[in-house]
């Protein structure tokens, strides 16, 4: 596969080239200092050098709100909402958000392959871009380097003067046809960035750490600080739990059944009719969330279900950090090992 230099001046033309092929979705500025993925109308408004977007591109495949059914109350007739493939070019996606999509693919195809999500996922093209980690990114700790190309069709490695554009798949190469403002790149693609935030254990060890951490006091300690607002789940690119609600239209004759993203941090999440709440304690909900990221799914899928984007930490108004929680568990685990080892040595003596 080929690689090309793409100078900063040519980026706009490149975006215009893409816009002729398909609808392009890319990062745009929002409010004072945030970024969001939006459909590109004017290539000038695209910002490829961004820290992270508020929500990940998950929102295109699993919208935060989605009508599932429409019904008529007079005769109990109902119809399913048609779901169409997004068929877009996703430009400027960071590797951790791509990895999150691959994890969602697993979750939605595993067991019962869900039509809504999987249909939207059809026929999309992904163009990655590398990022400079801030204080909150820790994706390298979960095997996701800023230059990881898995899942992408093209990848734009950021350099001082623009980008090195790497063709990753045949689809990516085909996309380049007709765009000639490029010179061939020969050499090694950049592949490392400096991270300021780290988990102190790889997944193989985390799996063991989490086996020993169920009764760690950290869950209770964090619960003192946590307001249980659900922001961490809702900002997470790999969370996909949802709730379903019915609404009746003002005509009183028709209505819709709508699903919306939900959060296992919310008290009502496990509430059954009659009022019993199965994870009533905030500490239990926090534990459940973190275990879902590093243990429950990871044990069978083999990878952490956290992609190290830092959203849950940066958006937490209570200042709770998932990195701090995990590192605390690792350190408690290590201490326990040392004690056990010294006990063994003592027993030998």
């Amino acid at each position: 596969m080929n690689g090309y230099y793409l100078s900063q001046e040519n980026v706009k033309d490149f975006i215009s080239h893409l816009m002729k092929k398909k609808t392009v979705y890319a990062p745009h500025a929002k409010a004072d200092h945030s970024f969001v993925f939006e459909e590109v109308v004017d290539a000038d408004n695209v910002i490829l050098d961004y820290v992270r977007t508020l929500n990940s591109i998950k929102k295109y495949f699993m919208p935060s709100r989605e009508v599932m059914l429409r019904y008529n109350l007079d005769d109990n007739s109902y119809s399913i909402e048609d779901v169409e493939p997004v068929k877009g070019i996703f430009l400027g996606v960071h590797s951790y958000d791509m990895q999150a999509v691959l994890r969602l693919d697993h979750s939605f195809s595993h067991g019962n392959p869900e039509k809504n999500y999987l249909t939207r996922r059809l026929d999309n093209i992904f163009i990655g871009t590398s990022f400079t980690p801030d204080n909150f990114h820790f994706s390298s700790s979960v095997n996701i380097q800023p230059h990881k190309t898995e899942g992408f069709d093209l990848f734009m490695h950021k350099t001082d003067r623009g980008y090195v554009l790497e063709e990753v798949t045949k689809t990516g190469s085909d996309l380049m046809k007709g765009f000639d403002q490029l010179t061939k790149f020969h050499g090694e693609y950049p592949n490392s960035e400096h991270f300021k935030s780290h988990l102190y254990a790889p997944q193989e060890k985390l799996s063991k750490v989490f086996e020993e951490s169920y009764d760690n006091p950290v869950w209770h300690e964090i619960a003192q600080k946590c307001v249980g607002c659900g922001t961490c789940n809702l900002a997470c690119p790999t969370c996909y739990c949802f709730d379903v609600e019915d609404h009746v239209d003002l005509s009183l004759q028709s209505g819709s059944r709508e699903r919306r993203l939900d959060s296992c941090m919310l008290r009502g999440f496990t509430e059954v009719a009659g009022g019993e709440v199965f994870r009533d304690r905030l500490a239990d909900r926090i534990r459940h969330r973190v275990y879902r990221k590093f243990k429950y799914i990871s044990d069978s899928a083999g990878e952490p279900w956290c992609v190290g984007c830092g959203r849950c930490t940066i958006y937490c108004t209570a200042g709770i950090s998932i990195v701090d929680i995990v590192n605390r568990l690792v350190s408690d685990y290590d201490k326990k090992q040392i004690v056990q080892d010294s006990d063994m040595i003592a027993a030998w003596d």
Partner: peptide
């Protein structure tokens, strides 16, 4: 008994541990 909302292993409401 749990809150089985979707019934198909997606929505997460009925999950206990793994």
């Amino acid at each position: 008994e749990r809150r089985m909302k979707c019934g198909v292993g997606k929505c997460g409401h009925c999950q206990i541990n793994h």
